[in-house]
Nucleic acid binder design. Structure first.
Lengths: 244, 244
DNA sequence: CCAATAGTGTCTGTTAGACAATATACA
DNA sequence: TGTATATTGTCTAACAGACACTATTGG
C-alpha cells in the first residue's frame, strides 16, 4: 500500500521537547542537574524537579542540538563540553498536555564547571544518583526519572569501551584522577596497570611537562588531544555488563 | 536563568516524522528500501524516491516505535524483525513545509521477507548501496540520502562488536552463511576459524540437528536463541574503523 | 579418486587482570 | 628514614588473525 492519503500537513502535531540529563561527578558520586518547574496554574507538575529542557522553538532553534544547548544555557548557565543524543520517546501518556515526543540528551560536565551552575535562588540543583543510576529520594516530573536512568545506562555502557568519562574532568588531569572517574562511572575498581597501558596505548592524551603536587609523589598531567573526539577502544574492560 | 516565560504550549510546533532506513542483503549486496513520493501538486519532491516514513499521527500511533512499524507495514507490507532508533534530526531547512524533526530508524530485513515487499506497481523498490553506504545513482527526496548513509554507518559500526548482521538471515542458517553477511556488512573478509570460535563461544546460537545439503559437504544449521536479544562481544573484530 | 565446501589444530600477537616491585615526593 | 602515592615489571589468560590441515559430501 502506498503512503496514506491524509492531508499533506497534519492538522494535529505532537509537542516536541528536548530534555537534557546533565551529569557531573561531585564529591566522588554521579549527580544529575535538576531544575524546578514553574509553580503556576495550568502547568503540569508545578514546583516539581525535572530535567532542564522544554519545547523546541521553531523561531529560535536551528537544530535539535542547538535547542539542547539553549536549554542548558538558559536554565542553568551551562555550556556543556560533551552533549549527545540518547533516544527519542513519544506517546500520548507522557505529558498531560498531549501527545509529546522528547529528544533525550546526555551532557557531561566537568566538576569545576558544574559548581558554577547559575539559577534563581534554589531552582537549580545537583542531585546525587543511586547505584541504579536513578535519582535518590526525589520523584521527578513526567517520566524524567526513567529518562535519567536511561541516559546514565547509556553513558555507563559506552564507558566500557571509550574514553567518555574523561569529559567529567577539568583539564589538565592526572592518570589516577582519570582512573578514578572511570571507577565511579563503572561502579567497580579497575587495575592500575591495565588502565594506564590501555589509555596510553590509545594515544589520545597529550602529556604535559608539569605534574600535580599533592603532598606525596606528584602525578604527571595530561590533556585530551581533542575533547570532541571520542576514543573507541577495540576491547571492552572486563567485568562489565555486556547486555545491550 | 529559569525556564523561559513563553506561553506554556507553543503555538507553532515542528512537523514530526519518522523515517526508516530499511536494509537487506540481496544478491550479496546491501540494499535500501525506497518508496515513491506522491506525484501531487503541493507535495515536496513529487515522484522522487524516499525512505518509507511520514508524519506521526497522534490519533493512531501509541509510540515512536509503533509509528515506525506502521510506516513499514502500510508502505511496504513489511514487519521488520529488527528495528532501532538511530538519531533525531531537526531544522528549518530539511523540509520546505517548515521546521521538521525526523526520528530516523534502521530496520534489518532477512532476504526472504525482503523479496515479499508489497507495493502498488513500481512505487516500492530495493536500491543497492555503494561502498560508502549511500544509494548509488539515485537522488533521494529531502536529506534521505544522508540519512541512509548515517543508518548504514551505525549498523556497520555496531556489527564490529555485536551479532547484529544475523538479522539479515532467514532462520535457520549455517555458519558460513552467517560469516558471509558479516563480510558483506563490514566490507572485508574475516578469518573462518576466528569467526566460528567467537560466535560459538558467544553461545547465542542454538544448534539444530539437521544440516543444509548444498551439493558439497553439508553445513550444520543454527538458529538464534533470541532474535530480539543483541549479543555484545567484549572485543571488536580487527581491521575495522574504530572512529566514533 | 577429485573438487568443493565445512570444519579443526596450532601458533602468534595483543592486551586486560593480578599483583609485586620501584620511584618520588614531603615530613 | 617513613609513609603515601605514582609508576613500572612480569606473569597469565583470553581471544583474534594466519594458515595449514582434516572431514564430508556429490560426481
Amino acid at each position: 500500500m502506498p503512503r496514506t492519503a491524509k492531508p499533506y500537513l497534519p492538522d494535529r502535531r505532537p509537542l516536541v521537547s528536548v530534555d537534557v540529563a546533565t551529569l557531573a561527578i561531585l564529591d566522588g558520586r554521579p549527580h544529575v542537574l535538576l531544575v524546578k518547574r514553574p509553580d503556576e496554574p495550568g502547568e503540569p507538575f508545578p514546583g516539581a524537579w525535572s530535567l532542564p529542557g522544554g519545547f523546541v522553538d521553531v523561531d529560535v532553534d536551528a537544530s535539535v542540538e542547538a535547542c539542547a544547548r539553549r536549554m542548558l544555557r538558559e536554565q542553568a548557565g551551562i555550556d556543556a563540553p560533551w552533549l549527545e543524543q540518547v533516544a527519542a520517546h513519544g506517546g500520548r501518556e507522557r505529558d498531560p498536555r498531549g501527545w509529546s515526543v522528547t529528544l533525550l540528551h546526555a551532557a557531561l560536565v566537568p566538576a569545576d564547571r558544574a559548581r558554577k551552575v547559575v539559577g534563581d535562588a534554589g531552582d537549580v540543583r545537583w542531585l546525587p544518583l543511586g547505584r541504579n543510576g536513578r535519582p535518590k529520594g526525589v520523584k521527578l516530573a513526567f517520566d524524567h526519572g526513567r529518562l535519567v536512568g536511561e541516559a546514565v545506562a547509556r553513558i555507563r555502557r559506552k564507558s566500557e569501551y571509550t574514553d567518555l568519562p574523561v569529559r567529567f574532568l577539568p583539564e589538565p588531569f592526572t592518570l589516577p584522577e582519570m582512573q578514578n572517574v572511570f571507577e565511579i562511572v563503572l561502579e567497580r575498581s579497575i587495575d592500575k596497570k591495565a588502565f594506564r597501558t590501555r589509555v596510553l596505548a590509545g594515544d589520545m592524551l597529550e602529556e604535559l611537562d608539569s605534574a600535580r603536587a599533592t603532598g606525596k609523589r606528584p602525578a604527571r598531567l595530561y590533556r585530551l588531544r581533542d575533547r570532541r573526539q571520542l576514543h573507541v577502544f577495540r576491547r571492552a574492560l572486563e567485568g562489565g555488563d555486556a547486555a545491550a
